[in-house]
Each structure stands twice: as structure tokens, then as C-alpha cells.
Write a protein that binds this DNA or RNA. Structure first.
Lengths: 140, 140
DNA sequence: CCGAATCCTACAGGATACTG
DNA sequence: CAGTATCCTGTAGGATTCGG
């Protein structure tokens, strides 16, 4: 952990925070590591929002975990492991994950067709963050 | 989120990793730090999914960032800063965030009424993870 | 086996009016 | 000001059918 910088009550130190008189609580401590969160472009181009949007639907997270755990998985087998997902939804989820660089799709021109999905390196680099998120969720 | 119950699959003991012969790629390297991701209960009780659900809608992330940055913010002022949010949606988002322990709501029995929102400590502990997510998103 | 095409429902999110 | 109460629309997700 890094040194927590306690904000003193005296005025004069840079005050980006609105405090009314008689206010009992100070704002949260904001370590430097999170400063970039507030420097990002305000509206819709927030990278955090984009990242969340890339994994926040009903199935994507489970898809990524299944592929990361099992390596190479074919479409039908993946659908079987994700109990209850419809083929249409799984297809579109995989398409988006592929577009976002989180999974790799490999199709073989065979009969019957064979399509393999695997997690990408980009997905692998996301897993430690998800693990932290898991730890965070378990705390509360 | 409506999931139709299907018959539970019970394939017996299965090798955790399926590798076909002639496969060129090995599964991703999985550091120990992410092992807990695959040990969690499979279906709907995944803590990661819960965490994501708590912040993955159109406004929650911006609400949390605004409150974390500005400290104490009243309802109307918050709505002004989140350009375009309707009060119904803002209200329900704040209710959920409060229920999940991410924001604190303080109402004063005055006329006109005054209600203050602030980010919780639990929210503060989430920010570093969001910062990492931001860094991750910037990499791809 | 791997989808694409179609149809359908539930719900998130928005617009507006009204209240204490 | 800080909400509720309605009404409305777009879309995520599911069921089913068809095709290469």
C-alpha cells in the first residue's frame, strides 16, 4: 500500500472539494493512483466505461473464464458448458469479444464445420484485475 | 436476467484442459493470482459478476467518479453534472448504489429539502481497481 | 456442427407531469 | 429541491426455424 495522504482541515491547501460550513465529514482519501480516473475525457469516451461494457453482459464473463480455464473450446462444447445460453446470444457475444480482442476465433473449412475459440493474451491480462474485483466483492 | 432451467450437466470427472493432438497453441498462462476466479461457484453467485453488475449501467460509474472527486453533492447538483440523466434514472441508480454500499445518502428535514450524496469507503476501495481497468483499456 | 434469420418478451432508460 | 407516478421506446436476450 502507499502512504495515505490525509487531507488537513486547514483551508489554503488546494481545495477541489466543496465543503459547507458545519460539514462533519471530509471527502474520501484519493491516492495518486486513481488520479487518472478524473483526468479522462468526461462524456462517452471513458476507457473504464468501455472496459466494463466489453465484459458486462449476461454471458461474456463466463465465456472468458471458461475459455481461459479450458484453453481451446469449440462452439457447441462452449454452449454446453454455459448452461442455458442460446446459440444466437452466444454467437453475438463471441463476435463482440472477438472484435474487442478478447477471444480468438479459428474456423476450419471442414464438413462438418469446426470452429475453435480461445482466450487472447489481452484476456489473460484482464484476469488479474478481475481477481482483484472478486476480492473486492468478497469484502463487502 | 431470465435463465431457463435446464438439466444439470454432470459429465463426471473431466480433464480441466482439453488439448487436441496437433494443437499448436497451449492454453494461456494462468498465474496463481487468478486461480480463485475458477474456484468460485459457477452459476449466478459469481462475485465478479456481482461486482460488475453493481457498476455496469449507463450512469453509475460517472456517479461514483463525480462523488469521489467532489465529495458531498446534492441531488440536483449531481444531476446537473451528469449531463442528460433523467431524475427517475438518477434516483434509481443512487438507490441501488446506496443498497450496495457504494454511496451514502443523507436527507435533511428542511424546506426546501436537502439530500446529500457522497461516495463511501467501499467506493474508495474500488477506485484503484477501476484505475487498473482504465490502464488495461488503454493498452488495447 | 456452426451459425443466420425471424419473432417475441422483459426491462433499462428516457420524457413528462405532479407532489411534499 | 427532491423526489414519485405514468407512459413510451430501444434493445438485450431467448425460442424457434432454416441453411451450408
Amino acid at each position: 500500500m502507499r502512504a495515505t495522504r490525509r487531507r488537513p482541515r486547514n483551508p489554503g491547501s488546494r481545495a477541489p472539494v466543496v465543503i459547507r460550513e458545519g460539514d462533519l465529514m471530509t471527502p474520501l482519501e484519493l491516492p495518486d493512483a486513481v488520479a487518472t480516473l478524473f483526468a479522462s475525457p468526461p462524456p462517452d469516451d471513458c476507457p473504464v466505461q468501455r472496459a466494463i461494457d466489453q465484459i458486462a453482459d449476461k454471458w461474456k464473463l463466463r465465456i472468458l473464464l471458461a475459455l481461459s480455464r479450458d484453453g481451446v473450446v469449440r462452439f457447441r462444447e462452449l454452449q454446453r458448458r454455459l448452461d442455458g445460453v442460446s446459440q444466437k446470444v452466444l454467437t453475438s457475444a463471441l463476435r463482440e469479444l472477438e472484435r474487442d480482442g478478447l477471444v480468438t476465433r479459428t474456423a476450419y473449412a471442414e464438413i462438418p464445420p469446426r470452429v475453435e475459440y480461445r482466450a487472447s493474451e489481452r484476456c489473460a491480462s484482464l484476469l488479474p484485475i478481475l481477481a482483484q474485483l472478486q476480492e473486492w466483492a468478497s469484502r463487502g
